[in-house]
Design a protein around this nucleic acid. Structure first.
Lengths: 335, 335
DNA sequence: GTGAAAGCGCTAACAG
DNA sequence: CTGTTAGCGCTTTCAC
């Protein structure tokens, strides 16, 4: 790899000047600029960004930490972030936290060390305190899908409680009163919020919350399978099932089918997230839309505004979920 | 952020010595080691990896370039890579190429600039020549899912031709002779290989290839929908459909259902990749297994062996696909 | 407009 | 065992 020295030598100017033309600084004559550019081309020169970072203490790259790398949800999020960042001439450095506090902190520190200018974090295991502490640090960051009062300006999230409420309200409006619920891990904030919304909807309709109709799973397909199997074994009556995400809903649907339970005629099912494949399930899954793409884009705007001062965007910190009605929920006439 | 100078000052030793203990070099007395460690702890010192990279010309991070960041396929691949790399104390820097040659090259150069030690590439737009040229460069890289004769040692891939062959052979063995095919973009090597395999299976069974039963799509769900719609409109007779990937198969299944075509009794469908959600479709999709996780892991082993000389792994360059029989293909009794 | 020189934070010979 | 001295490749005052 050619260095700035060689460019300087070949073009016959000092390396300061080379640096100037490379960085579009004012006060460089057209002629020398041309000479430098020619040398650059001839040598296939590309500045070494490590050296540049060291000198400027700035890397034009933002670190993105997500809990998981797979799953449709994170995929959509990362894609949106990468495209938007790249369009702004910045780069994304992506790492995974695997929903484990130590691993998440390790990931954050890795990204800071790599001299990222700013961070986009989607973490759930790390404590609020850690994050609040981090905010006193110099590195700016946005938190996706998490709300912490003390640093709410840094948070961009969905109103999960409202989502949980809307889902169950939708079921209730369709005539259901015996509603089972498959939750995510209750220690996760979003899982907790969604179930709170569920309970609020029940309360509003004067339906007692039945603990036997609650199953705590893991946000994965398998958990949905387990949940449905559990409910079937319990022999509890339920005409509808709300799931805290779509993967679990698809698992539940599969088990229902295997047990001869018809969806939606025997049991209505509603998901959460509106992940791409919900549309390809049979029946197509009714779910709650999680505008993850918009949220991810907003996170990038936040970074562009607060770290790179590119433009003065309006930042919207909380997004509202909406119901996507498809085929998996059916009206239940009251007896 | 504290620097090595401050650690040196606080502990009362030179920065070389600090550097030595930080890097576990031999010949440092227990006592000074302790002093340094104390200072490190006290100052919350973490070495700046940018400076370190510049000095060593090595970053302990490997660049991963994929065509897309979303989709179950890439998600599984990235997860496997990230976990394995991290277990070896290395880090992944991930970028996307978006199946566009310029963008892919840009991504590769970005990763090189960031002084990655090695690269894992999953690219399809960039030319063979570029890659061959790159191999003459100093940076080692593995190519996932692409075979180039000249640099075959760097390639880790699936035998796509065999996969295409097996899929259609499976259909033929089930009694089908009128087989439609929805392909990926034909300029992509893997799409081309898969269809070659399809043709070989047909030829072997003395079935003429019918160009009207071929639809070139884009490997996306939408393409599968379009393909199925096209075949229906054509009014060509076909009792089975092979799709070059699962997303397209799911799209085709959806359109079939919307048109009253029952899968598999009216039309058998086979996919390719064995992506996680195939199991949650209805009927569950019969498909060709693409051991992407194993392939991704092998790529990391390649890097560990060739760049970091950690262990002398055995490298397996080509993997074989297998049929995963589920519910979407049915035996067709000959008349 | 352009060059010289210092320095970003760290590692790596080379002495001692 | 430890300190001194050069850099790694680039940016950035400060002179001219």
């Amino acid at each position: 790899m050619a260095t700035i020295y060689e460019v300087s030598a070949l073009s016959g100017v000092s390396k300061s000047t080379v640096s100037r033309v490379l960085n579009d600084h004012a006060n460089v004559s057209e002629k020398t600029k041309q000479k430098v550019m020619d040398a650059v081309k001839q040598l296939h020169y590309r500045p070494n960004s490590t050296a540049r970072s060291l000198a400027t203490n700035r890397s034009n790259s933002v670190g993105v930490l997500v809990s998981e790398l797979h799953g449709p949800f994170y995929g959509d999020m990362l894609t949106a972030i990468e495209i938007k960042l790249r369009a702004a001439g910045k780069h994304a450095i992506i790492a995974a936290g695997h929903s484990d506090a130590a691993s998440e902190i390790d990931g954050i520190e890795f990204l800071i060390e790599r001299s990222c200018d700013a961070l986009i974090l989607h973490v759930d295991a790390v404590s609020d305190e850690y994050l609040i502490g981090l905010s006193k640090n110099s590195i700016p960051f946005v938190l996706i899908n998490r709300y912490i009062e003390e640093i709410k300006e840094n948070c961009i999230c969905l109103d999960n409680e409202l989502g949980g409420y809307l889902a169950s309200k939708y079921l209730i409006d369709q005539g259901h009163r015996d509603i089972a619920y498959i939750s995510g891990p209750l220690w996760k904030k979003d899982a907790g919020d969604r179930i709170s919304g569920h309970k609020r909807a029940l309360a509003e309709a004067n339906i007692d919350f039945n603990a036997q109709l609650l199953f705590e799973a893991d946000f994965k397909v398998k958990g949905g399978c387990d949940g449905m199997s559990y409910f079937i074994a319990q022999k509890q009556k339920f005409t509808a099932l709300a799931c805290a995400n779509d993967e679990m809903a698809s698992g539940a649907m599969k088990v229902a089918r295997e047990n001869g339970i018809k969806v939606p005629s025997d049991c209505s099912i509603i998901g959460f997230d509106n992940v791409f494949f919900t549309e390809y399930l049979y029946p197509q899954l009714t779910t709650v839309n999680f505008p993850i793409k918009e949220i991810a884009l907003m996170a990038v705007r936040w970074i562009l505004k607060n770290e790179y001062k590119t433009k003065d965007f309006n930042i919207n910190n909380v997004f509202e979920p909406t119901i996507i009605a498809r085929e998996s929920v059916q009206y239940l006439p009251s007896k």
